[in-house]
Design a protein around this nucleic acid. Structure first.
Lengths: 111, 111
DNA sequence: CACTATATATAGTCCAGAAAGGTATTCGGG
DNA sequence: CCCGAATACCTTTCTGGACTATATATAGTG
């Protein structure tokens, strides 16, 4: 029933994590999801119904460029890479995120 | 323009913070917002167009009970207090939040 | 008496994320 | 050689939370 935080993702953090996975080089969508899953030790599972629309929006915003290629497992896939604008966005988002988290933790820890 | 994290609030955390402010005793809506603003040192400003609908949903979920009273500044106000269910919800949400944050930080720090 | 701060509420809008369904291909096993 | 699992992509539809704007009302202050 989508009870706020009892969900797959913390809303508003998907773009940031996608940008982060791409910050060391291009990846295709499926690999992005797997990487986030791995890095989070299995805690963050990105549904592809969330991932691909997000990638699409990010293309429109000019944060990413995409081109078709072949994976190391010999399959057709669309590789996304960061644009300079996307890299800048990553910086802004992670800074805003950290600030937000600190503020929330202040509220949650204040007795 | 509503660029994900460039907003007032991290979506999905409002319930949790409201529950937290009420965990030490009843408050009216306006005071909840002010308390979150104070505790976050001015960083988290709850719009009343977000607050009152949220309080209303929380009443429906049975997390809160409300009754009308008079503030110390002698004004009519609706005082909200946690139900046992709400207290349990607070525990669950803050646990889920911490876990989520840890997972995201893993992703964001992985080189 | 007007203005500010306090206090609540709702209607309307927007958008991200989830659910669910659909297509296609590679590869390994039986 | 076929079948199923894993890989890979995409779209449509729905829901729900947060924001904007608006409306109402009163206590206290200048």
């Amino acid at each position: 029933m989508g009870d706020s935080l009892n969900q797959d993702l913390l809303p508003g953090t998907l773009y940031m994590m996608i940008l982060q996975t791409l910050s060391h080089g291009p990846l295709h969508g499926y690999a992005i999801a797997r990487r986030i899953l791995d890095w989070s030790k299995g805690d963050l599972e990105i549904e592809d119904g969330s991932l691909y629309p997000a990638l699409s929006r990010m293309l429109n915003k000019g944060w990413l460029k995409a081109e078709w290629g072949i994976t190391d497992t010999n399959r057709r896939a669309r590789f996304y890479r960061l644009t300079p604008k996307g890299r800048e966005q990553l910086g802004q988002e992670s800074e805003a995120f950290n600030k937000m988290i600190r503020a929330i933790q202040l509220v949650m820890k204040t007795a």
